[in-house]
Amino acid sequence: MKSILVTGASGQIGSELVAKLQDVYGEDNVVATDIRKSPDAAQQSAGPFEILDVTDGKRMFEIAKQYDVDTVIHLAALLSARAEENPQLAWNLNMTGLVNGLEVARQLDCQFFTPSSIAAFGPSTPKSGTPQDTLQRPNTIYGVTKVSGELLCDYYHSKFGVDTRGVRFPGLISYVTPPGGGTTDYAVEIYYHAVQYGNYTSFIGKGTYMDMMYMPDALDAIVQLMEADGDKLVHRNAFNITAMSVAPEDIESAIQELMPGFAVSYAVDPVRQAIADSWPSSIDSSCAEMEWGFRPRYDLGEMTKDMLLKLHRKLQVKTS
């Protein structure tokens, strides 16, 4: 990767990935794009930024051509809970944007990355130790777009030779950018509420296990996969990756190790709970480990220590 175009650069992943890519490849070599620039000054890119609606394929091509990009990292998408509120918008944004990104990569001979998700699985998928290759019949529009995207990326690789790559992200936890409408967002909110209020009411029920990952590990995974030897990649577009399988009470216990008075109560959101129940409780990431050396650095305890430390600083809340 030498000159990189990032779509959805103001989102949860993009706002942190752009900064990491700038550190690795240089500020001027990362072109951040989004439909609007983030109002949060802390998220403003020091390098080039362009306004882009990803459903506008002509504009995407023009930006990529202007900056002579050799890599497209396509992150723009409507996430699971928000997508269920407006399925037509989700399909249009998620799929049209993806096709446009793939076309840019095909026409300009770029590497291409887009994330899939554990949402690509469904209620008929094995829930525990979900394998890399398995039945995928999601019952959410977000999941449908992710499965479709996986297949489309495979097609562009086999049909046109585009160097497509991707991972199935679990829930991502970060202190930098607020949640953006995902089902796993409780795992971000719980830390914010622990620092700000000392308690949290979870919209996901007790005992609901889902895979999670701390954002630094997710960012490392993207760079590592894009730099990996393509000849060694078998699965290429939808690697299972995970760092931990946790339920709300597990995060509560980890926080209580550092904040003994913290407590979680429950007011389950039926829509998001149904989505969570359709997803795996744990996935098998062994293919990513074998094919490109994926290995997360943070477990629940280490992530919790870092999240609470960083959030106390960010929110300017003194530790007791």
Rank of each mutant, 00 (worst) to 15 (best):
S253A: 15
L300A: 14
F121N: 14
L89V: 01
L75T: 05
K2F: 08
A254G: 10
T145M: 02
V176A: 14
K314T: 15
L21V: 11
P87V: 03
S320M: 10
K318E: 15
M226E: 06
A46F: 14
G14N: 13
R236S: 13
Y298L: 09
V18A: 07
F169P: 00
F239V: 07
Y200W: 09
I241L: 09
A83T: 00
I204V: 08
P248T: 12
K314R: 13
A194W: 00
M307K: 05
F160Q: 00
I255G: 01
H157M: 05
E50Q: 12
T242I: 13
S116N: 07
N92F: 11
V72T: 08
T208M: 04
V246P: 03
Q136G: 03
Y200S: 03
A64M: 08
D277E: 15
K305D: 06
M226S: 02
F61V: 04
S286P: 11
L152F: 01
N94K: 01
N92G: 13
L108W: 05
S320W: 07
P179K: 05
Y192N: 02
T96P: 01
I118D: 03
T201S: 08
E150K: 06
P123Y: 13
C110I: 05
N199E: 07
D154V: 01
T134G: 02
V6G: 03
E84K: 04
M215E: 12
A41Q: 13
N240R: 04
E289R: 10
Q196V: 08
D28Y: 15
L152S: 05
A42E: 14
G171D: 05
A247K: 14
A194K: 03
G205P: 02
P248I: 11
E62C: 04
G205Q: 02
E150H: 06
